[in-house]
Amino acid sequence: MKLSILDQAPIVKGKSAKDALEESVNLAQLGERLGYHRYWIAEHHDLNGLACPAPEVMLGAIGIKTTSIRIGAGAILLPHYKPYKVAETFNLLATLYPGRVDLGLGRSPGGSAEASVALSGNFLENVRNMPEAMDELLHFFHQDFNEDNLFSKIKPTPVPDILPVPWLLGTSGKSAVLAAEKGMNYAFGHFMSDQDVKPTISTYRQLMKENHPNKNPNIILAVNIYCAQSSEEAERLAYESFKWSVNKDSQLSKEQEDEFNELRNKMIIGNPTEVKATLYEFEQNYQVSEFMVLTNTPTYESRNKSYELLAEAILMEQ
């Protein structure tokens, strides 16, 4: 089993955005020391409590502070950007940090409707055009446009010796189909999806086999984990983290309590033994060997401890 880290750069109580971004660098370094396979950082725009609108900038800072862990975006929200610019940016990162760079792609807005308009105008139209944008991006990476295509005359320089590895991030069967059509690796967001994992992943595997029989279907399952020395402490961390994200120091309303209880069903919460058992159960049920772990707790210390306990329970016993 491989474990990886998904970071949303949360701003916890009493801390600043600068603190959050510095802790993101620290988390990537910690993950590397503990044996995590990848570190990905997410893109959000003007969302209360999250500090990173530009994963590519943070990856430049994180790459220079690490040496072996794979680093990537989880995700670059492609409808906001031109494929050529994305290819240039990630080719540059892959040139700086050879053999370590992942490019996760997503189609969510990452913020409010107003932020989406400010970023890219007609976001919904851009989402409809995302399959074509993905094709264009992949052609830029592989430099295999038809000769009569205008873009065949340009390169997204610098062109690295080892290209970034593209992944499609999704939460539905629709994204699984798109990833398989394009022959891309697929990361499924278990923690933010209402869809059943098993049929979604089965769809991806089956279509990959049909469309790209020479490629191995690579799958990551992204999960929300709260791990602590005791089950009670893990439950407290999950509850307090949700409370801070929606209502800061105030008591939760009945509607918010209901929302937490619904989200609770998608979380993995417990002591190391309990969390380990759940992940191995997921591995067997879904035939997935890599889990990308999102952990937002009330303090950076408890977040780091959760990742440490998880690594001790799984990575250091393998």
Rank of each mutant, 00 (worst) to 15 (best):
E32F: 09
G14I: 08
V25T: 07
E43Q: 15
A20F: 05
L34A: 03
E43D: 11
A9Q: 08
R33L: 08
A9P: 05
A17N: 08
N48L: 12
N26P: 01
L47N: 13
A28V: 02
K18R: 14
W40V: 06
A54M: 04
H44P: 04
A9D: 09
H44F: 05
S4R: 03
L50F: 15
L21V: 00
S16P: 06
N26R: 15
L21E: 00
L50H: 02
K18T: 15
A17V: 04
P10I: 14
N48Q: 14
A42P: 01
G49L: 07
E32L: 08
N48K: 14
Q29M: 15
C52L: 12
A54E: 06
N48C: 06
W40H: 03
D46V: 13
L6I: 14
L6Y: 10
K13W: 11
S4M: 05
A54W: 00
G31W: 07
A28H: 01
I5N: 01
V12M: 05
G49P: 05
L21S: 01
R33Y: 00
E56V: 02
H44C: 05
A42S: 15
A17Y: 09
L6G: 11
L27D: 03
L6M: 13
S24E: 03
S24A: 15
P10C: 11
K15Y: 12
A20Y: 05
A42F: 05
L34H: 02
E22M: 14
L30N: 04
L27Q: 05
I41V: 14
I11C: 02
P10L: 13
H44M: 06
D46L: 13
V12C: 03
L47F: 10
A54G: 00
K15E: 12
H44I: 08
E22T: 11
A51R: 08
W40T: 01
K13A: 15
A54T: 13
K15A: 14
N48I: 10
Q29E: 14
L30R: 04
H45D: 04
P53V: 10
E22Y: 09
Y39G: 01
I41C: 02
H45C: 03
P10W: 12
A28K: 01
S16R: 12
L6W: 06
L6E: 09
E23H: 14
E43Y: 13
S16N: 12
L27V: 06
A54F: 02
P10E: 12
S4E: 06
I11E: 04
V12L: 02
G31T: 08
A20I: 05
L30F: 06
D46Y: 13
L34M: 12
W40Y: 01
H44L: 09
A20Q: 06
C52T: 14
Q8D: 09
D19M: 05
L34P: 01
L6T: 11
V25R: 07
I41E: 01
G31D: 09
